[in-house]
Design a protein around this nucleic acid. Structure first.
Lengths: 222, 222
DNA sequence: ACAAGTCCGTTGTTTATCCAACGGAAAAGA
DNA sequence: TCTTTTCCGTTGGATAAACAACGGACTTGT
């Protein structure tokens, strides 16, 4: 277990917890390790999940196959990331996706029950851990709600405006940079790149905004 | 505070906690009450949130105004529902939405720090509360991810197929009912009702599925 | 300095969605 | 029973997005 401490200390889950404490917590949380070879299934649709997982190394894809066999990649998990946190609720039903290792991967399993139930011996960092896990899913929640608010806009134009408007608010300036290039932004908003590029230029020509590369400036309509 | 116990005992947050324990926990959690008159703002964009809230009575809208002044209703909060849980992360930045009371409303405020930090006196239901809150946002998280997976499909057809496919999985049968009428389903998927209705009929004519009212049956393609 | 590759705006065509409107079936109410 | 309302499928025209394709600007690598 010791060799995973250096990885775990850099995760959100264990942020603020010292090396020695991580090691003792691994024990307290009943941590176990599993390895998956490239292409192997970590979980299959229909299984029940009872643990919280952290990917120690490798790369996982969370993907879904629909009733007619169409495959859809929903998410990519990278080292240090937590997953499975949405399926540990009692009676939450079986997993609806497949989790496969697209590289040789090592996954750490934590007993969910032990995380949320504070041990009588009250290991000093347990409260810290609970906060960390709460903050992590809380953060995820927030970004999901935000993304959903963009995606629920009907047109490319509206998707762009709601996203850019939010970024201006978030960065507290009408002038700001976004962490995407055009293709990535299009993928993020689930629209066609060229159509989006076209729409951006229309918005610029209408005087609603201006941009150079990934730097945008919003302006009041004239 | 006593009068709110009957409301709180029916919330997800306090589920499984007895009346007396709720009362003592309200104290332990530093609960406070605020009332809002119809049309009044509970929170404004830009404020910082440091509490977890439960709506005791009334109705709230979470809405957003973009840079150019366009209004967008994101969510409606009903009595017993928790909100604000995504903004209590330290350094999570200011609120990006407005929260307004569309009816005269009563809101309970809980000190977030006290929820996540187990008190030394270890009130017996604190662990229970932590689990409940975790389960609640975890559940929300899951449904957000699911909805996002439908919404990120490009076409109405794909949105329908991914949603219906998921429902079949969830209800573990190729024949199932959905909790929406056509208009509600269209709103849920953010598409036009008539176009969706049209697409459903095409899918039926192609032999991929069948339906009567809100009961659907998926079939393998012939 | 050259070649290869990436990024982005632009265009024309095809296709899908939106929108408004209508009618029939079913449900709800009087 | 009759009226009113809601729900849903259908249609046609207006609009927007997707798609394929291209060229120029810029970057990266050799």
């Amino acid at each position: 277990m010791k060799k995973y401490v250096s990885i775990l200390k850099r995760t959100k889950l264990f942020s603020g917890v010292g090396d020695d404490d991580i090691l003792s917590m691994l024990n307290c949380l009943n941590a176990t390790v599993r390895e998956y070879s490239k292409g192997g299934y970590a979980f299959r649709q229909g299984e029940y999940i009872r643990n919280l997982m952290i990917l120690a190394s490798g790369r996982l894809h969370i993907q879904k196959e629909d009733y007619w066999g169409n495959l859809n990649i929903l998410n990519e998990i990278r080292p240090g990331e937590m997953f499975g946190e949405a399926y540990i609720v009692p009676n939450s039903g079986p997993l609806m996706d497949d989790v496969i290792a697209i590289e040789e991967s090592v996954v750490l399993f934590f007993d969910m029950e032990r995380i949320l139930t504070v041990c009588p011996s009250a290991c000093p960092f347990h409260t810290r851990l609970i906060k960390n896990i709460f903050y992590t899913i809380s953060d995820k929640n927030k970004s999901l709600v935000q993304k959903l608010s963009y995606m629920s806009q009907r047109s490319t134009r509206e998707k762009l405006l709601s996203y850019l408007s939010d970024e201006a608010k978030r960065q507290n300036s009408s002038s700001f940079s976004i962490p995407f290039n055009r293709q990535q932004l299009a993928d993020f908003l689930s629209v066609d790149r060229s159509a989006m590029s076209n729409e951006l230029c229309k918005l610029r020509d209408e005087g609603m905004l201006d941009f150079h590369k990934s730097k945008f400036t919003l302006s009041q309509v004239k």
